[in-house]
Amino acid sequence: MRLRHPRAPWRSALALVAAVWIGSIGTSGEARAEYADVVINNYSDAAGMRPVIFPHWFHRIRFRCKVCHADLGFQFKAGGNEINMVKIIDGQFCGACHNGDIAWSVENCNLCHSGKPGTPTQVHESTIQKLAIQPQAGGQQ
């Protein structure tokens, strides 16, 4: 975690709460995608592919969090899993399901690589995004 632990008294916590309230109403321009859509863009832009958009709402109708975040080992961090196509084809991460058996397979590039080019790694509509603290483009390790 790169964010410093704020030893803030509760007043500044309330100030943050207020900031969230304002953030939650002042939608920044056109960004109004579904809550919890994750944009993953560690390598895509550089490789000339559109960034990947992972829709939580769609997957949580079909699977509990546990399946991905405990069994398949997805860390709770957008961009924090160093996913690439070799791993996917080998059945890791998205490839554990997008294998033509549980869900449609990898040849449907454009269903995953569907983001506007240049969109940074992010959890869409997250509190941090609303607080306008730019989320660290994850996985720069």
Partner: peptide
Amino acid sequence: DGIHDPQNDGTHALQ
């Protein structure tokens, strides 16, 4: 929705 690319044919196939 502002983050999906409308130029991408896959975008239009999403639910």
